[in-house]
Amino acid sequence: MTEQENLVINKKNFALDFVSKYDKYLMLVAFVVISAVLSDKFFTTQNLTNLLKQNAALGIVALGELLVILTGGIDLSVGAIASFSGILVASFLKTGMPWPVAAILAIGFATLAGLFNGLMVTVGKITPFIVTLASMTMFQGIGLLISKGRQVFFKNPDFLLIGREYFLGIPLVAWIWVAMSIIVAIFLGKTIMGRFIRGIGGNKEAVRLAGVSTILYESMSYTISGLLGGIAGVMMTSRLTLGTNVLGDGWELTAIASVMVGGGNFNGGIGTVGGTIVGVIILGLIGNIMNLLGVTIYWQQIIRGMIILLAVLSSSRKKLGSAA
C-alpha cells in the first residue's frame, strides 16, 4: 500500500531529511568552526562574551519580528520602538525616578506603540509594510521630540548593572535573551494563542472560519513585538549608559534578516524560535569574525548581504523541491 511504501522511502531519505531539517544548525556549526580556524582570538572568553552582549538586545527584537512574520506581516518599526523606549527610560531616570518604575513605564509605552501598529493593520486594514513604515517615522519623531534631538544623560548606577552584571560567567543581558526565547518558544509551541498566530499566516480565512478572532491574535503579535522592542531598548540604554535616538537604527532589517536566515518566510506560518536565534548568532558571528580579521566595514556589508541571500536561497530551493 501507499502508506507503507512512503514510509520505506522516508527511511531511505533519512540522512537527507536530517540535513535539510537541521541545515541552519549545521550552518551555525560550520560558521563557528571557520571562525575558530580563521582567528585564534575567536574562542576567548572576552570575545564570546562580547558577542553575546552585542547581540542579546537584537536577539530579543528578532523574536518579536518572528511573531509578526509568522502572521504574514512585517514590522519595520521595531528599531524605532527600541530607540524610543531607550529615550523614554533615560528621560525618566533623569527625573530621579527609581529604575524599575522607569523601565516598566518605557516598556509599557513601547507595548502601546506595538498595539497601535496591530490595530492599524487589523482594524484599519492597512498593509503591515505601510503601517510600520509610517509608524517607524512617527516613533522616531516622538523620540527626537522628547530628547530634543540630543543624547539623554542620567545618573543611576543600579540601572547600569543590567548591562554590566554577570551571572554564572555569562552576561545578564544574554540571560534575559535566553529567558525571552524560552517564553516565546513556549508561547508558540505550547499555547493555542501561538498556534493561532502561526495559523493566521498559513491561512487567515481558515482560522477565521474556525471561529477565532483574527483581529485579536494579529494585533497581539504586533503588540508583543512592541513589548520586546521596548525591553531591548531598555537593555541597550543600560549598556550604552545614555539615551540616544540612534540606538535601534537598522535593527528592524537585521531582525528580519535573522528570521529569514533562520528559515522564516514572508508568506507567513513558517519560522521557529530556534532558527531565529541561530539567524541572529550567524549574522553576529559574521560581523565578529570580520572585525577580528580586520576586514573593512565596506566589505563587511557586502559579505553580510551575500550570506543572507545564500541562506534564504538554500531554504527557498528546499521548498521548491518539495512542492507536491
Binding site: R195, G202, A206, V207, A210, I270
Partner: peptide
C-alpha cells in the same frame, strides 16, 4: 483557500476548531 492551514501539521489542523 478556506479549509486548511497548508503549512501546518495535520495534527494542528484537526484540533483547530475544537481547540
Amino acid at each position: 483557500k478556506t479549509g486548511l492551514i497548508l503549512p501546518m501539521a495535520v495534527k494542528k489542523n484537526i484540533s483547530l476548531v475544537g481547540y
